[in-house]
Amino acid sequence: MSVAVRGLTRRFGPTAALRDIALETRPGEFVALLGPSGSGKTTLLRILAGLDFADSGTVEIEGQDMSAVPARARRLGFVFQNYALFRHMSVFENVAFGLRVRPRAARPGEAEIGRRVRALLERMQIGALERRMPEQISGGQRQRVALARALAIEPRLLLLDEPFGALDAEVRKGLRRWLRDLHTEMGLTSLFVTHDQEEALELADRVAVMEAGRLVQIDTPERLVEAPATAFVAGFLGHAARLPGRLAEGALHFGGVPLPPLPRAALRAAPAQDGPVLAFIRAHEWAVAPAPEGEANATLRSQRPAGGHAHVELDLAGHVIEAEAPLGLLRVGQPCRLVPQTARAFAA
């Protein structure tokens, strides 16, 4: 199952929700659309499903142009953010809906519908709930019902809008793993929308990062973290400190903060031209050590243990910097010397 989107643009009044989006998925892939709210990811998903329409550009599914195909003929599974279960129908009837509305010739018999629905409910581990009404089950269970309902029509592509958005953290973690396994076992091709970078990086084969209606980078999680294409991607992924600076004389000079310059050779990414830049430095890319008053450039604000090290927050001339330090090395309020080992710089 492959999707190809080309030159997709969608405006709502004067604002462009999507600008010139190009995206291709491969069969069996799990793709995340990641971006802050208002970046257009849900609009893109809705256009794929036929629930919204592009002003220009094309959507092809399995090589077939979708512009004249209504939502009901696309055979795509769509899981809504709030699940949109039919409140007056039992769990069983919700899942059976897609089979019951088929034209008579393609509609399976009652026994076959029952068999298929029950198999799906079993697969979703909610077999015992078939007679319950949607309001009588928990959020996580509703999510599974919504998934089962979408899968009942044997969709060519599964689209999920913020699939874990309405769930609490504990349920979310469990369901994430389960959804990943389900995707693999059933050989689905799925596209899901999220604003949670951890969710995207953990689940997806490839992540498409969206910013203000544009698709700024689509890559594997590893590539995305290692080689962000723009300052936005670098800032959005991986909890990096963002500091203004200047590239000049073969080094990165920080502006407004007492940090020593970093030579170009130490930078993981930098524009070829000298000039003003935005530098991103992740927590593990700092070196922190206690220092006497004269050499210190930062103060420890707080720390908490995280795995084998301490996660520390330092005050660097008014900027809050997150870094890692050996456990027990620092005390709160202690003057420290903070030095970046590397950075990613993007032209500002």
């Binding site: 499903a49 036929g50 629930l51 209504p70 696309r74 949109a84 809906f97 509305v101």
Partner: peptide, 19 residues
């Protein structure tokens, strides 16, 4: 969304209204 869900599941407009 309930109506949109019905549409993505293959229901016609009349089926959506009725069901």
């Amino acid at each position: 969304e309930a109506e949109e869900a019905a549409a993505t599941l293959g229901a016609s407009r009349a089926q959506t209204l009725w069901r």
